[in-house]
Simulated assay, not measured.
Amino acid sequence: MTPASAPAHAPADHPKIKPARTGILIANLGTPDGYDYWSMRRYLNEFLSDRRVIDLPRWKWQPLLQGIILTKRPFSSGANYKLIWNEEKGESPLMTITRDQTEALRARAHAEWGEQVMVEFCMRYGNPSTHEVLDRMVKAGCRRIVFLPLYPQYAGATSATANDQLFRALMEQTWQPSVRTCDPYFDRPDYIAALADSVRRCLGDRKPGKLVASYHGMPKRYLMQGDPYHCQCQKTSRLLQEALGWEDGIVDTTFQSVFGREEWLRPYTVEHVAELARQGHDDIAVISPAFAADCIETLEEINGEIRESYEEAGGKDFTYIPCLNDDPAHIEVMMNVIRENIGGWVSRS
């Protein structure tokens, strides 16, 4: 890398400036630093205090959160994280996979654009924080940044809050870089093809009685307020079924991770798979198109609670199809999105 230097014709005491680079920053939801009580409490406090996630008035929500919820929930959530924790690396699978995705993207980006680009990742909640990583990139000379939230479908509680946090971090910068935020990629042909290939790879020639596409849930009220998430999930499922060449009725769209008492998007995955079993469907597969990386919601909730719901209702064969993670086809989807958003900022090396 070219070292920092003062601009030409600048006075001798002018501060040195790093050569201009373009940053590529991917963002995932986040993860606790550990599954102990205090790590879980810090993480859950940040996550559940986000007004994009829980939009109740603070005077009503915070006493409940700081009292009952953050007293009890860190224990149960920590126990669930312990079941899937990457003990070898001392981190959650989401952290491991997001780092692997970043390393794969970095190798591809450097091969295409050389050292003029810098590729990093951040988490909306927990570490590495958006503020920390953005500051490091600016100090490394990034004057332009392509920001890619790792959510195929847009939702206020995912893509928007990731963007919010980036904008808040920008407010702390003296010299703000230019930023381009990427659109969701829920209906891109390359993304749908990657999903379909993952189904074929996992199931081979077998076609299950049902393929349940389970998406993270959200309150139904958000849909009625104009959030496009539900519609984008439905379109992803429809396009996936078409790409697989399967007849109508094979792919069901459901929603998981219900929280609180109000009605969320339906049908609920945990109830739906049990109903499928009672109807005589003894061979189902479940895929999670809303998650770019396997995490607590897929590895523990789907492969644990939801699998158990199906089997306890009499179901037999349950196959979980892993997320795309760092599969080369998924990395290529990300690279294609980045290429479309980085245009005019970099040149091929």
Results as ranks from 00 to 15, higher is better:
111 A>I: 10
35 Y>L: 05
34 G>K: 04
42 R>C: 13
116 Q>P: 07
255 F>K: 00
186 F>D: 06
223 L>K: 13
329 A>W: 03
262 E>W: 12
275 E>G: 05
169 A>K: 04
43 Y>K: 04
148 L>G: 06
73 R>P: 08
331 I>T: 07
297 E>W: 00
95 M>L: 11
299 L>D: 01
260 G>A: 01
296 I>S: 01
90 G>L: 03
313 A>G: 10
231 C>M: 14
223 L>D: 04
303 N>Q: 15
136 R>N: 12
270 V>D: 14
292 A>P: 14
213 A>L: 01
284 I>F: 08
101 Q>V: 03
11 P>S: 15
153 Q>R: 01
20 A>M: 13
93 P>D: 01
32 P>L: 01
77 S>C: 08
21 R>E: 03
171 M>P: 14
106 R>F: 09
197 D>K: 14
4 A>M: 10
288 S>R: 00
231 C>D: 14
277 A>F: 06
35 Y>H: 12
319 T>K: 07
130 T>R: 13
230 H>N: 15
242 E>T: 10
293 A>Y: 00
103 E>L: 14
170 L>N: 08
7 P>I: 08
33 D>W: 06
287 I>S: 00
195 L>D: 00
143 R>Y: 13
35 Y>M: 08
325 N>D: 05
77 S>Y: 02
49 S>D: 07
121 F>G: 08
210 K>R: 14
183 D>W: 15
159 S>C: 11
12 A>Q: 13
122 C>F: 01
77 S>I: 02
87 E>K: 15
39 S>E: 03
117 V>Y: 10
79 A>H: 13
171 M>K: 15
